[in-house]
Amino acid sequence: MLTKNLILVYEGEFTQDITKSVLAMAERNMESMGEESGIKRKVFNVMVECLQNICKHAESFDENTYGKNTAIFMIGKHDSEYFITSGNPILSDKVADMSRKLEDINNLDKDGLKQLYKDIIKNGKLSSKGGAGLGFVDMARKSGKKLIFDFEPINEHLSFFSLKTTIPRN
């Protein structure tokens, strides 16, 4: 019996066009499996935030200065859940801040996340890269589960950030 099923893995350059292709493929796949529309929407939602996060941050690194820095994106399905995993290099001096942000999100319940979302959308400004600072909060809200994350040093400048979000299928 097939209990684990990888839907899609992509490694390489991330752009808006690639984001659109990856989304279209994953959507078609869920469609062909007859997935419920509510679940499809949540998975789509988390995929977009995840892929656009990588697009926004991938541009920041010049390969000549920092070494090779490709990112990876995966979406898979178990019997009871979908999981969306991404891995991408980030500047190591961002690790402490991101780690704190993600821990804060994981410590909040449904209402706490709603409040945080409203605070950020109301008082936050778009970053120079066009991010609203809402991506992780939104992913946590759509998931209803804790975000699983890790940072591994790559070299003196970069760390590899991995993030896994699960979407229950019930």
């Binding site: 789509f44 939602n45 935030e49 656009q52 959308i121 778009l126 066009g130 809402l134």
Partner: peptide, 12 residues
């Protein structure tokens, strides 16, 4: 049908 978080800021 769907909007991302960056769009939500602009909708506001």
């Amino acid at each position: 049908e769907y909007f991302n978080t960056a769009s939500s800021k602009l909708i506001l």
